[in-house]
Design a protein around this nucleic acid. Structure first.
Lengths: 348, 348
DNA sequence: CCTTAGCACTCCCGAACCCAGAGTGCTACC
DNA sequence: GGTAGCACTCTGGGTTCGGGAGTGCTAAGG
């Protein structure tokens, strides 16, 4: 039976089922639904509709003679159909603005984001600061000699993100040389993206070596040491609210699996960047994570890119149980994503 | 009955009980113990000894006619009595050295520490980089103007720890002034501890204002902005291996409590710094955490200070179930603590 | 005096069992 | 198409019961 035959009555019943299921956690049956229904439909009628919805794949039956439970499909339909209606509650708004006052630094903002999201939703708050070396424009670079053969490199981008890294060099470069190297880079490459600096630098190293010789060799050293590569690796992950996951009667083993996944920072990064579309601004709701990650059964991801102006500096998301308050969480995620841009842009 | 009457037979039985309890998780009875005991004591004899040990407070009985379970006291006695004997296993040693090769930066080292510890033990690996502004000696400080009224401050200490922070200023300080300010501080205070720089700077600001006027006002601004205060707050916490906690048949609510505690970074910091004695090098084993933190029932902390030379730069610890492999974990913690000093010192 | 054997007693835990409640599908009727 | 009724099914909670493991005590033996 095709999905097309979903009329307004069917839709109403579907949302009613999903909402009571989210509220109670029990499979919901026709009788229960018949009560508390304004249109006073009889259980039998509802049963018919439910049978249709089940055929359409929107509902599932744990076993014969149990109530119905929404399927991933059902959730998707539900979410689609409610998107955009709700407003963020005043309480949430207060909580959020309180948590973010006085922050001007994307790193810090993202760190708190994970915390705030975990508070607002009944899920895990996740935020990553993006690896987007492609987009970030250089503001400054510093080098400082720490010890023999060890150099501290600090890269600052236009959007205010700071990354530091200790490099180990083959030879010892004196502080004076480091400073000229930094000056050279700052003078020639300010405003360039990290990515283009790297290619251009590689080109110049080939070409101009004869000219500046000394300067160029130290720059080459630093370059090889990875001064500018760091953006690729150092994307930080902020996770908070894991305790929220201990709700359902999951068997222990699955819970462990899940936590383990959450601890593997790399997989979170993959998860977010594969699902959160950085090209468009909207909040993305992913239902049915288990299709790709079996450990993530019964979990949903609600995420959005974090951007400052045109630059995407990371992603933020909530990972929570399928039985979650979608409206609430979606509006919160969207609100924070917007706030992110607003706060960080006006302070630049 | 006083503890003093613990003879060698009693001790042997106690360790046997604790070890089988750690292995099985079941309360251990006299019969079970009588098997697998080389001295071939009869169950009855063992029962007598067990009764004594219970009177001494080293064992507990979940209920009449159940086996015995070690009490916190019992664990303490056990741990005391085994300290120092075991050697770290080759496998662990390999794992550890593999994980730490090529690291020269305390931050990074601590971050991996939490990971490695969670792998080795069946517990949560925790590491904090210490707030010890008192001990760290200044190597360099940088300031850079990011935007109007926003300044990036980077402080590097002798031990190679780098901290950055975005300061917000009342007035806009041009880059040139920032550089002279940094030069002033670097010239006058290199090698000082952060703490003493702060007091001295405050003194000079009072006294010498008339002289350098312009320079001093910008320094004052930076000072007030918190350029040097950051050490107090920015102690980072690395936690890993939470999934390991899902072992026992804890009721859900307690587990959540525990995870919540682990998420509150501040409390971990308090926990570690109150228990891990930074003054002495040894590994500290704390049994009975629940006495202060009820959520931490059935958990043990095994921690040690992380130091580079004389300077304490943080702490590392394992938080795990009381039923854990003590020898194994203690040796691992101790080994990593020593490695920490060794690796970072030789590379300075 | 310490150790051992025997014995009666206690308590937990899992298996079997049963029953009420909630739900379903189907058929017949309006 | 909507509704009412009915026979059937499945789950989940409560109860009962017996085996197993363990204890404490007493009495006998080295």
């Amino acid at each position: 039976m095709p999905i097309s035959n979903i009329g307004s009555r069917e839709r109403e019943i579907l949302t009613a089922i999903i909402e009571t299921y989210i509220a109670t956690g029990e499979p919901v049956g026709s009788r229960t639904l018949a009560r508390g229904n304004k249109d006073r439909l009889s259980p039998a009628t509802i049963r018919n509709v439910m049978a249709d919805l089940a055929d359409a794949g929107l509902l599932e039956q744990p076993h014969t003679s149990a109530g119905r439970v929404p399927s991933p499909q059902g959730y998707r339909y539900y979410v689609e159909q409610l998107t955009g209606k709700a407003q963020i509650s005043q309480a949430d708004q207060d909580l959020i603005t309180n948590s973010f006052t006085g922050i001007g630094d994307p790193q810090e903002f993202l760190e708190r984001t994970s915390h705030v999201l975990s508070l607002i939703s009944r899920g895990v708050g996740v935020a990553i600061s993006s690896r987007s070396g492609e987009k970030n424009e250089l503001e400054h670079v510093y080098f400082s000699r720490l010890a023999s053969g060890k150099v501290l490199a600090v890269v600052v981008t236009k959007s205010g993100v700071v990354r530091d890294r200790v490099l180990r060099m083959d030879r010892d470069i004196p502080q004076a040389e480091l400073e000229s190297a930094a000056n050279y880079i700052n003078a020639n490459f300010q405003g360039w993206t990290i990515e283009s600096i790297r290619t251009e630098l590689a080109r110049r190293l080939e070409q101009e070596r004869s000219e500046y010789d000394r300067l160029m060799t130290s720059i080459e050293q630093l370059y090889r040491g990875g001064a500018l590569h760091q953006q690729d690796e150092q994307n930080t992950v902020y996770v908070e609210g894991v305790s929220n996951l201990i709700v359902s009667e999951e068997d222990r083993e699955r819970l462990r699996e899940m936590l383990r996944v959450l601890e593997e920072k790399q997989r979170i990064i993959e998860l977010l960047s594969s699902y959160v579309d950085t090209k468009q601004e909207a909040v993305r709701v992913v239902i049915g994570l288990e299709e790709r990650l079996p450990e993530m059964r019964n979990l949903v991801l609600i995420g959005a890119p974090a951007r400052v102006g045109e630059q995407v500096v990371g992603s933020l998301a909530v990972i929570g149980p399928t039985r979650m308050d979608y409206e609430h969480t979606i509006t919160a995620v969207s609100y924070i994503a917007q706030l992110f841009d607003k706060v960080l842009n006006e302070n630049q």
